[in-house]
């Protein structure tokens, strides 16, 4: 393998910084349009293998795309119309319980025990309930706000649907047209990089989403077994939080504990919930992830933590959810680009 010269490395670094600045500018100027394209790209990556399979058995691309497209969006709509109202009702119920004071009762038990200890030590009285209540209320009102926001984003969804269809049907033709514009000198290198990015990205996205889905299902089942009320809400949240490594699973467990305490007014389910989440973590690390996510696209823990913090800082809870997949995608693109340049040495 050829070694890159220092000048080339500096040039690549400057190019990388320039791309970041341009990307940041575009996100600010045309964020929603870019996000439509990105969401459509992710869905088309997920559906492409099934359309290819249909093509393999002789179904024309247009028909295969239409069939998979209708199936996927029917499934999503069905889930949306059946599960969303249930989740929404569960969230409303939990929010109501906070206001009727079940959470206050449970926290007051902790408060009383801590204050008992503090009195022995001669310290001042400790008031925990108002703080915790406030945090939980703000978090839940955010969830409700987001849910209603999604319902009213019909135009956005329509645009995503439209873009997904054409990316699935004409993706190869679009790619070929874009590649035809690349100068002769960089043509083979570009083709190779695009192919590798496509392959790794598809595998990565399908892997993390499948992992989140499996963990969501297992969490729902575990919470149902333990007897946590609103187990569907907890399972859904656990699945989504699973997209955030390290911080996600404990957050899911914390949410489950809060919901069980709020609903039942006691801490008795806390230990089984924590044990269930530890077991789920082990199952995920040793069984599900090795089967769903390729080793080559896993990231260093430090990068992951930094990505989560940066995502949270810039885009809030959704930033934290999507920071790691986004960095994963970026990581794949960058490493393929770097290795591609090393192999072809175009300068």
């Amino acid at each position: 393998m050829n070694e890159l010269s220092l000048t080339t490395k500096i040039l690549i670094f400057i190019l990388f910084l320039l791309l970041l600045v341009i990307g940041w500018y575009l996100l600010n100027v045309a964020g929603s349009i870019i996000s439509i394209f990105l969401v459509a790209l992710v869905i088309s990556f997920l559906l492409a293998p099934s359309v290819d399979t249909l093509e393999r058995i002789g179904v024309p691309r247009l028909l295969g795309t239409t069939v998979m497209f209708v199936l996927f969006f029917s499934l999503v709509s069905a889930v949306f119309y059946t599960v969303t109202p249930i989740i929404y009702e569960e969230a409303v119920r939990v929010q109501h319980r906070i206001s009727v004071g079940a959470l206050r009762n449970a926290i007051q038990q902790v408060e009383a025990s801590v204050n008992e200890q503090l009195r022995i030590l001669g310290a001042v009285e400790w008031k925990l309930a108002p703080y915790v209540e406030n945090i939980v209320r703000v978090a839940l009102s955010n969830i409700l706000g987001v849910a209603s926001g999604v319902v009213y984003s019909v135009i956005y969804i329509f645009m995503v649907v439209f873009a997904t269809f054409f990316l699935l049907k004409d993706g190869r033709r679009i790619k070929k047209s874009l590649i035809s514009a690349v100068p002769n000198r960089f043509f083979e290198m570009t083709l190779s990089i695009i192919h590798k990015i496509e392959w790794s990205l598809g595998a990565y996205l399908r892997g993390i989403l499948l992992d989140a889905f499996v963990i969501g299902l297992l969490s729902t089942f575990a919470m149902w077994l333990i007897g946590v009320p609103n187990f569907m809400l907890v399972g859904l949240a656990a699945g989504m939080f699973n997209l955030v490594p390290y911080l996600g699973p404990p957050t899911g467990a914390l949410l489950a504990v809060i919901i069980s305490v709020v609903s039942l007014g006691t801490w008795e389910k806390t230990i089984p919930i924590i044990l269930a989440f530890i077991a789920l973590r082990l199952i995920d690390d040793f069984l599900v992830q090795p089967m769903t996510i390729s080793k080559s696209v896993r990231m260093h823990p430090l990068v992951v933590i930094f990505a989560i913090l940066a995502g949270g800082q810039f885009f809030g809870i959704f930033g934290m959810l999507f920071a790691v997949p986004a960095v994963g995608v970026f990581n794949v693109i960058l490493s393929e680009f770097y290795h591609g340049i090393q192999r072809y040495r175009p300068i």
């Binding site: 190869r172 590649i179 035809s180 043509f187 083709l191």
Partner: peptide, 23 residues
């Protein structure tokens, strides 16, 4: 449909010895 049509000027390299080949 899957072939890539490319035009080269006289004297232009299509590929060079030692470069990774893709096809």
């Amino acid at each position: 449909r899957i072939l890539h049509r490319r035009s080269y000027r006289r004297g232009e390299y299509i590929f060079r010895e030692g470069e990774t080949g893709l096809g």
